[in-house]
Every structure is written in structure tokens, then in C-alpha cells.
Design a protein around this nucleic acid. Structure first.
Lengths: 214, 214
DNA sequence: CGAATAGTGTCTCTCAGACACTATTAT
DNA sequence: ATAATAGTGTCTGAGAGACACTATTCG
């Protein structure tokens, strides 16, 4: 904008520029399975991840939030950037870079959306299957060591059994006994002092997430 | 390019598009310290990481290779993508997204370049100090568990002592005795059967990297 | 009481880290 | 022999995982 010219004598605006999009894997738990929010592709009826083109003067995270507000009524999210997908033929409309993002939200916030289990999401438009795979791997890695780092349980206190069921859904392959799980997670939680009631068996203690355990 | 219009009626080309740049932290070992390649900024004499604007029809990794070929005569590298930096005010020339990359190369390939220790690189243009910090953290993480994953030792066989010295330079904080280091790394290496000669003390075995230990 | 769930004592196995020892070369 | 470096046997402590036991509630 200042008349700057690079070493080859070209001004900044002389370069053809790509369109930049954001595409987001919105993960949640639905029907006891890790699931992803999909939208119908406007072009050919196939399915894709929600996304949008980056607008002028907009930051990537804001573009993600805008696309999710438009397409799923979500607000107040903190998307995490995964990776840029830049294959030249990834979008037949032209030259489009996509910055893939990940967000996870508690299921109740997605009541009327199209959700599909991540293991059976079917064919997706563009390279969105690859983005989804990356997002799931990242989520599983995040859940391996820490209690519900993405807040899929919502804000209320929870039982260790509820937490363990969540973690097993996120990463089904990990066996591990309940006592091992407890000894790993309990030191990272805050004991609210409350107990659950109205259930069968010994009442379970209720825990809350400690602030700052990523 | 096909006259496609999105739900709001805009064609793909109607959106203002950002310039997209790549900036690369080129890391190496110089004078016994982990060092980074810097170039002089054409505008104000400050220093910056080598980078370039993405050209039309070019993939990010190719833009990185082009910028490094131009500025340091390097070829045949495999850059790794780190993260997109998208702050609106990060470049006073206009709206520029930067995709940060990391590359590591053996020192001999950088003989006539400007190298600075990463701990004392001085002030850098744009947000390049942040990119450098990210790159160093990534390199250190990669070196924590695996023998020279970035090939800083070059192609020839090497001694476990040489490997350990390299790892200590990359991550100076890790103490650890030599036997611990050996027991961690040796199973990931191939014993060439050769030994070093002409040195003081018991001759050391020469190892090579096994193909596919990331 | 029995069923069901919560929570813990404890054993074992593995492994990182440390120490100390042995091995092999040059001078 | 002595210095110097390479390489290994072994002890220890921490921690993951498994098993079995105790604890507390409801019906």
C-alpha cells in the first residue's frame, strides 16, 4: 500500500493472490459416537465441512467464528489452527488455500445440525476428508493425557465415570482399567466436595476442571 | 473460474484477497550453537527470516524452496509447515498472511550466509521473532526422542558421541548421562560395522540413520 | 440381604536415570 | 603405565497397569 517494490521490481499488488478459505472440523459427541458437523455443498449436493472465504481485514479465527455462527448458530468458540491445505487442484473453482481448523463443542449446542460419526462420514467435498482425519487425530492426542481439554462435557461438574466414558468415545482403542484412568486424571481435577445422588450404588464425587490444564 | 456464486451472491473473485507469503526459519549448527539464517530487510536494514510471496499456481513448499534457492543457494529441502500468522497489522505494506515454515540443514551448506545464534538473534522484522521461537520449540521437540531427525549431521556415518553433542546443542537444558542417551538412541540406529580410527581412546562404532525413523 | 457402583491397597513389570565398572586404543 | 574415550552390568525409584479388595448406597 506504500508503493513498496520487492527486489524483482514488483509491487505487492502485482502478484496474483490466492483466495483464502477457512474450513473447520466441528467435533462433538452424538449418539455415543465422536461426530462431525457437516453441511450440504451448494454446488453438487455433496457434503463438506463448514467454511467460508476470508473477508477483507478479517483474522482467520474470526472467519471461523463467522462461518460457524452462520451455519450452526454457534458463538464464543476458540478454534485451533491445524494446517494449510494448498494443493493447486483442491478446489475446481480456482486457486483456493484452505486453513483447516478444529473446534469441539458439547452436543446440546448442535441440536438441529447434521452430524455424522467420524468413522463413517462418507465422501466429503474437496480435501475435507483429510482435514477431518487430521482433526480427529489432534483431538485424540489432546485427550490422551488430560481431562476433557476441549470442554465436551460442558461447564457443570461431572463424575469420573462420565469423564471416562467420554474419553473412551473419543479414543475407542485405548483399553486401560478404571483405576488407571482415575489415577491419571484425578490429580488434574478439582474435587467440588459435592456428590451425585439419586443413582444406584455408592454416590460418586463430583469434579470440576481446574483452570489452566490446557 | 467457472462463474460459481456463493450463497450471498458473490463470485469467487469478488472477495478482496490477502497476499500470502512464506517465511522460513532455516536452522543449523554454527560455532557450537543452534543458529538461524537471517537476511537483510530491503526496507530498513533490519533483519528478517528469508521469505517470499506465493506466486500464482505455486504450492507453499515450492515457494519456500524458491526463496531459499534465491537467498542462500539451497536446494532439495523438505520444509515443514508450522503455522499461519495472520495479525492484521503484522506487515505495514498491507494485508499479508505469512505461512511459517521450518527447515534444518547441515552447517557446511550455509558457508557464506548470515547466521545468528537463536538465543541472541536480536530484533527481527515483522513477527519473525515469534516464528523463530516456534521453530526452535518444534526442532527441540523433534530431537527429544529421535536421533537427528532433521539430518543436521549430514549423510555420512557418525559416532554416538557426535550425535550426543549435536543433541545437547539443540536442547541445552537436558542433562542426562551418556549411557541413558545411548540406550535411547542406539536401537533407532544402524550399526555400520565400521569403527572410527585415528582418535584417542577406544575406537567408536560408526552408526547410520535407519530409513524411516522420522 | 444382594446388586450395583465408587474408590483404594498393593503387586508386578518396565524403564529412565545414575553409578561404577570393564574394554580398547594412543602416547 | 597412563590418559582418554567407548561401552555395559546393575541398582534404584517412579509410574503404568492389573487384580482384588473394601466402601457406600438403593431396592
Amino acid at each position: 500500500m506504500t508503493g513498496y517494490r520487492d527486489p524483482s521490481g514488483k509491487a505487492l499488488t502485482d502478484y496474483p493472490r490466492p483466495s483464502v478459505a477457512v474450513d473447520t472440523a466441528v467435533l462433538t459427541i452424538a449418539d455415543g459416537a465422536l461426530s462431525v458437523l457437516l453441511v450440504d455443498d451448494a454446488r453438487d449436493g455433496s457434503r463438506r465441512l463448514p467454511g467460508t472465504f476470508l473477508h477483507s481485514g478479517e483474522v482467520l479465527a474470526d472467519a471461523v467464528r463467522r462461518s460457524l455462527a452462520d451455519k450452526a448458530g454457534l458463538a464464543g468458540l476458540e478454534p485451533v489452527q491445524l494446517q494449510v491445505f494448498d494443493a493447486l487442484d483442491r478446489d475446481d473453482r480456482g486457486w483456493v488455500l484452505s486453513v483447516a481448523h478444529l473446534v469441539a463443542v458439547p452436543a446440546p449446542l448442535l441440536r438441529d445440525a447434521t452430524l455424522m460419526p467420524v468413522t463413517d462420514a462418507g465422501p466429503l467435498a474437496f480435501d475435507h476428508a483429510e482435514i477431518l482425519e487430521l482433526a480427529v487425530a489432534r483431538l485424540r492426542a489432546d485427550y490422551a493425557e488430560h481431562p476433557d481439554p476441549w470442554g465436551l462435557l460442558g461447564n457443570g461438574p461431572f463424575t469420573l465415570l462420565e469423564l471416562e466414558r467420554l474419553h473412551r468415545v473419543v479414543a475407542p482403542e485405548r483399553p486401560g482399567r478404571k483405576d488407571t484412568f482415575r489415577r491419571l486424571m484425578e490429580p488434574q481435577l478439582i474435587d467440588t466436595g459435592e456428590v451425585e445422588h439419586g443413582t444406584v450404588g455408592k454416590p460418586a464425587r463430583l469434579f470440576a476442571k481446574s483452570h489452566g490444564d490446557s
